[in-house]
């Protein structure tokens, strides 16, 4: 489904990813853990096509296609979704309108009929309950004045309505209290399916109590330095990243 080979990425003059390899099969949930500055967020931006992240070497093959050739909106159409660590505010644009514009763009790309306003309302309401999102929140401008928990719940709602094939969650647990963490974790888990893969990027193990991964990788100094099952995350929690940092250096 996703195959990353020997990926080197520069941000400005600095090389951040230094030969990263990763393979994810359909339906698998992979977690990437690592210390700050290891290149975790860079990986999420390279996958989603953000400008300023220059691939100098290596390849990313997604569903048999060269992902690096595609514009961000095309990647979204092809099923790549990024839950942002810091969701962006768009003043004056209601969350509902934004969701509708996004969903209809993606549906159009996928050759499906676009929703009209009534159909869309019904479609969204099916998804809002589980995430405890009120109609009032949908009326508010995108992320403007949202609490940390509201922002992350809104990200998961977007993920649900955009029906991705590969969802990348970048530090989705940051800024969440225990209750919000549980709601978000359960929301994401409800979206697991045999056709949907996930890449969960996190610094801490606690999110993985709710989103239990099939595979755990350790990213340090721009490379995957260790791979294991969910127990690896628990070990990291106990021992920290120090050994890896030394190994990579």
């Amino acid at each position: 489904m996703l195959e990353i080979n020997n990926l080197h990425v520069n941000v400005g003059e600095t090389e951040i990813l230094k030969g990263l390899n990763l393979k994810i099969n359909a339906g698998e949930v992979h977690a990437i853990m690592g210390p700050n500055g290891a290149g975790k967020s860079t990986l999420s931006y390279v996958l989603s096509g953000r400008v300023g992240y220059e691939v100098t070497k290596g390849s990313i093959i997604y569903q048999g296609k060269n992902l690096l050739d595609m514009e961000p909106e095309k990647r979204a159409g092809e099923g790549i979704f990024l839950a942002f660590q810091y969701p962006v505010e768009i003043p004056g644009v209601s969350t509902m309108n934004f969701l509708k514009a996004a969903v209809n763009s993606v549906r159009k790309y996928r050759g499906k009929k676009e929703f009209d306003a009534m159909e869309f309302l019904k479609f969204v309401r099916e998804q809002t309950k589980i995430l405890n999102i009120s109609d009032d929140m949908l009326k508010r401008a995108v992320n403007v004045g949202f609490s940390g928990g509201e922002k992350k719940r809104a990200e998961v709602l977007q993920m649900a309505v955009l029906d991705p094939i590969l969802a990348v969650l970048d530090e989705t647990d940051s800024g969440l209290d225990v209750d919000a963490l549980r709601i978000v974790g359960e929301g994401v888990t409800a979206l697991r399916s045999s056709e949907r893969s996930m890449l969960v990027i996190t610094h801490y193990q606690r999110l993985l109590d709710y989103i239990v991964p099939d595979v755990v990788h350790v990213l340090a100094s721009g490379k995957i330095v260790d791979t294991g099952d969910k127990n690896l995350a628990l070990e990291l929690e106990k021992n920290g990243y120090e050994t890896y940092s030394e190994a990579a250096a």
Binding site: S48, G49, F81, E89, F98, A101, A102
Partner: peptide
């Protein structure tokens, strides 16, 4: 902002549509 445009595009909205959306939000009042 670049991050607003990227956020919209990551959600599948084309750059042109994203600009129209953001500007319409700006003019809403």
């Amino acid at each position: 902002a670049d991050d607003q445009l990227f956020y919209c595009r990551q959600r599948g909205i084309s750059e042109e549509d994203a600009v129209a959306l953001i500007v319409n939000g700006f003019c809403r009042d």
